[in-house]
């Protein structure tokens, strides 16, 4: 069995950040201030966020448009788009606009191993993306334990997740961790990984950066993504965690055609919960 901390690069990153912050505190006298920067106004483009899930069955598409960087309006949502979901057998589902910029359908019954195509038509332009619904990977079990904390990690209860990676296929995972029903790692703290290092093996993963207290219920979702969605999240993660002074930022790799930003992801989920118990008990 392979036992794995959340990610090796986590340590490397932490090291770098802590190291720089100590340098800055004790050697240097850094000062920060808000400044005016004269930015160009890019032509607005369409942003689409589409998710198709099996557990629970749901299809949801959000459509918006980019705005001026220093503009005050948060986001311009787009109404009256035609949104269509098709599977590779030709079944078609039209999504209805439930609220401004949010499109859903109740008729879809996602099926494993099918390819889905999402088409969005806005002002005569069509944007398309494909995503395959891969089979779910089940979580075998969860345990909880207490860590004294060390180096940059705080003391507290953490969860260990056990599962087996299906052999001979490429798997792309996302872990979602809920504490008492509340998602603790949203887009600003994605945990995603592929099976490059452990294809077909049993795994044990300890997300040490999300801690619990006795009495909490931890719910873990193990999502199986498809390659393109995984690419999107990986590049998304890169953009938002870009350290100042590091590589030039770029837009995450969208899987939409025609220059739309965003992603369409079909995924299946393995889920389990555990109640965190006091070690003294």
């Amino acid at each position: 069995m392979i036992k794995w901390l959340i990610a090796e690069s986590f340590f490397v990153k932490m090291t770098k950040i802590k190291y720089i912050s100590i340098l800055v505190t004790f050697l240097l006298f850094s000062c920060e201030k808000v400044i005016d920067v004269n930015l160009n106004e890019a032509n607005p483009v369409i942003v689409i966020e589409g998710n198709l899930t099996k557990t629970p069955v749901s299809v949801e598409v959000k459509i918006s448009r980019t705005g001026s960087y220093f503009g005050s309006a948060p986001v311009t949502k787009i109404s009256n788009a035609s949104v269509l979901l098709e599977d590779d057998l030709g079944a078609r589902f039209i999504l209805d606009e439930l609220e401004k910029g949010l499109y859903k359908s109740r008729n879809v019954h996602p099926q494993i191993d099918k390819n889905y195509k999402l088409s969005v038509e806005v002002e005569g332009k069509i944007y398309e993306a494909f995503s395959k619904l891969n089979p779910p990977v089940t979580i075998d079990s969860l345990t909880s334990a207490f860590s004294e904390g060390f180096a940059f990690l705080d003391a507290g209860y953490y969860v260990t997740i056990y599962f087996e990676d299906p052999a001979e296929v490429k798997n792309y995972y996302q872990l979602k961790i809920y504490k008492n029903g509340k998602l603790k790692n949203d887009f600003d703290n994605l945990i995603i990984f592929d099976d490059n290092l452990f294809d077909g093996q049993k795994l044990e993963i300890q997300p040490r950066n999300i801690l619990f207290i006795p009495g909490d219920t931890a719910t873990i979702e193990l999502n199986s993504l498809d390659k393109n969605a995984y690419e999107y999240f990986k590049t998304f993660q890169e953009v938002i965690s870009t350290n100042p002074g590091s590589a030039a930022p770029a837009n995450p790799n969208s899987n939409f055609t025609n220059g739309a930003l965003g992603y369409f992801s079909a995924y299946s989920t393995g889920v389990k919960s555990i109640e965190i118990k006091d070690i003294a008990e």
Binding site: V37, L39, N40, E41, A42, P44, V45, V47, E49, S64, R65, T66, G67, S68, Y69, G71, P74, V75, D186, F187, D188, F236, V239, I240, A248, P249, A250, N251, P252, L261, G262, Y263
Partner: peptide
């Protein structure tokens, strides 16, 4: 030369910069 955003948008509740060219600023 440096890359700055020329617009912004939102994904999953996070605001992202929209980049149009490398090192354009």
């Amino acid at each position: 030369a440096v890359t700055f955003p020329s617009g912004k948008y939102e994904i999953g509740g996070t605001i992202l910069g929209y980049y149009t060219e490398r090192n354009g600023y």
